[in-house]
Computed example of a mutant assay.
Amino acid sequence: MRLPLAAFLAFALPVAAHAQFVPRSLPPGDRNPGISDMGTLPGSGPLPDRELRKARDLINEGRDRGELSKGEAKALRREARQIDALADRYDRDGLSDPERRELETRLQLLRADTLAGRSQGHD
């Protein structure tokens, strides 16, 4: 009983603590440290096209190899579609820096979730 509880707390506490942190706002024009410039400018087209293709390829490859369950792959594909729709909506009037950072973050999380699911190996 102690081992499952300890495992749960080890994973649940960092997630709960992470949700409580709120980053400070940066002055206009300042770059957010640690966020890479993916080479697009506002209005130059949806940012995540290439990254979404890579994420979808990872999802499909993981499902084909049995590393992701059908439900996991479905949830990851749904998230990819939501990111794509959000990118299209943001790009209508040009991507702002905060919008670009949000898309980058969501893509990074999608990729991390995909890789984590694949490393667990489901049938």
Rank of each mutant, 00 (worst) to 15 (best):
I83Q: 01
A19L: 14
T114S: 11
G45E: 11
A12Y: 05
G39K: 09
A16M: 15
P23K: 03
E51L: 08
G117V: 06
G62L: 06
G117C: 10
P48G: 03
D49Q: 12
H18G: 11
A17M: 13
P27V: 07
K74M: 12
P27L: 13
A10R: 05
H18A: 15
A75C: 06
R24H: 08
A16K: 03
L115F: 08
N32D: 07
R111I: 14
A87C: 04
P46I: 12
T40F: 12
G117D: 05
L47Y: 03
M38Y: 09
D84T: 01
D93H: 10
D84P: 00
T114Q: 08
A85L: 08
L86F: 00
S25P: 02
G117L: 06
K54W: 03
F11W: 13
I35Y: 14
H122Q: 11
K70C: 01
R89N: 00
K70N: 07
T40D: 04
R106V: 03
A55L: 01
D84N: 05
S96A: 15
E102A: 10
D57A: 15
G94V: 12
P42D: 08
R111M: 12
E79I: 08
L110M: 10
D91P: 02
M1W: 11
L13K: 05
R118W: 03
P4I: 02
R65F: 10
G45V: 07
D37W: 14
E79H: 13
G43W: 07
G43D: 09
L107V: 06
S119L: 13
E51R: 01
P46E: 14
A12G: 08
S36K: 10
R24V: 07
R118M: 15
G66V: 05
P42I: 05
R31G: 04
L115W: 05
G39H: 10
A17L: 15
S119C: 06
L26S: 12
R106K: 15
T105M: 10
L76T: 04
L52P: 02
S36M: 09
Q108P: 01
L26R: 13
L26H: 11
L41G: 06
D49K: 09
A112C: 04
A16G: 04
R65H: 14
T105A: 12
K70V: 10
R24I: 05
H18Q: 10
R100P: 00
I83C: 01
G71Q: 14
D88A: 00
V15L: 12
L9R: 03
R118Y: 03
G66L: 07
A75N: 04
R101C: 03
R53L: 14
T40W: 04
E67Y: 00
P46H: 05
L26T: 08
R111Y: 07
L76D: 01
R101P: 01
S25E: 14
Q82S: 11
G94C: 09
E61S: 15
H18P: 00
I35V: 13
P14R: 01
R77H: 15
K54R: 14
L52R: 00
D123N: 08
G43A: 09
P48L: 02
E79W: 04
L76V: 06
G121T: 07
R118P: 02
L58P: 02
S44L: 04
G71M: 06
S96D: 12
G29I: 06
N60G: 06
D49F: 03
G29P: 09
N60C: 00
A116I: 13
A12D: 08
K54H: 03
D88Y: 00
R77S: 14
